[in-house]
Write a protein that binds this DNA or RNA. Structure first.
Length: 273
DNA sequence: AATGGCCTGGTG
DNA sequence: CACCAGGCCATT
């Protein structure tokens, strides 16, 4: 499930492979994956444009084109954006969109569950307006007091806030559970009940686990691979996520699974308080 | 704030 | 055969 570290890993591999490439053609076996446009309309705005650089905002991949326009790609659950070297238009079973590059390669968007979306924006302002996201937790300008202020006025469980992209951008189910584990906080604690020293611990844990996720090139539970088709390896370093019934790696008690905001939530009821 | 819909492959 | 996974959006 691509969260901030996975999307950042894809961004890096895409940038290394496709910056400077020119778009030649588009084919959309699943037209709905393009937001608010038909495939023909999409082709008309991206044709012959050069991909300048790949960026990331929260879980959105962004790409700047040479005419000032931007594309965004959201992989949602099962989306993959891979660069295919063969000139053959080889279609995978779940290929939803192909962006043909002038050099013969293909930027292929595969998505088993059809949740992922690509969008085009004429400029940076319209892009930012369309994505009302909170601050990046790994942004240097995002301090512990900023984080505490976001939590102070809210009654929802702390985990719900971590998952809310308008509060902080990029955190999903895996890294939320991991950060709460490292901060030793129960996921259902009301956000406003956190003491400044507790929110500071969570701030630290969140940044740490996201940066380590990036360093390990993301978590591959089932579908996730980067633009080169490589899996990540942070799944080998998870403390609680997916470990229901197994011993807590800190205290030995059983990891429990509960539901918060309709999401499976893995935690240790003994050392997370 | 909580719930349902979008989706499809895998599981019980 | 029913149900679950889950990010995000729309609806209540």
């Amino acid at each position: 499930m691509p969260e901030l570290p996975e999307v950042e890993t894809v961004r890096r591999s895409l940038h290394a492979r496709t910056s400077g490439a020119r778009i030649a053609w588009v084919e959309a076996p699943f037209a709905k994956c393009i937001e608010a446009m038909t495939p023909d309309e999409f082709l008309s705005v991206v044709r012959d444009r050069q991909i300048m650089r790949w960026g990331r905002i929260g879980k959105y991949l962004t790409t700047a084109l040479d005419d000032g326009a931007f594309l965004t790609v959201h992989l949602r659950m099962t989306g993959r954006l891979v660069v295919v070297d063969e000139e053959i238009r080889q279609t995978g079973a779940h290929t939803r969109l192909m962006i043909g590059l002038a050099d013969g390669r293909i930027l292929r968007f595969d998505d088993q569950r059809k949740f992922g979306r690509i969008a085009w924006y004429p400029d940076q302002d319209s892009l930012e307006e369309a994505l009302p996201l909170g601050p990046e937790p790994i942004d240097e300008r995002f301090g512990p007091e900023d984080f505490h202020a976001l939590l102070a006025s809210r009654t929802r469980p702390i985990k719900s806030l971590l998952l809310d992209q308008r509060i902080v951008a990029g955190v999903g189910n895996i890294y939320a559970d991991e950060a709460l584990f490292y901060a030793k906080l129960a996921p259902n604690r009301p956000a406003q009940g956190l003491q400044p020293q507790e929110s500071r611990k969570l701030w630290l844990a969140l940044r740490d686990v996201l940066l380590r996720g990036i360093a390990h090139r993301g978590t591959s539970m089932r579908d996730y691979v980067d633009a080169d088709g490589r899996t990540g390896e942070f799944q080998n370093h998870l403390m609680v996520y997916g470990r229901e019934g197994e011993p807590c790696l800190r205290c030995g008690n059983r990891v429990q699974r509960i539901k918060i905001s309709g999401r499976s939530t893995f935690h240790c009821p003994v050392c997370q308080r």
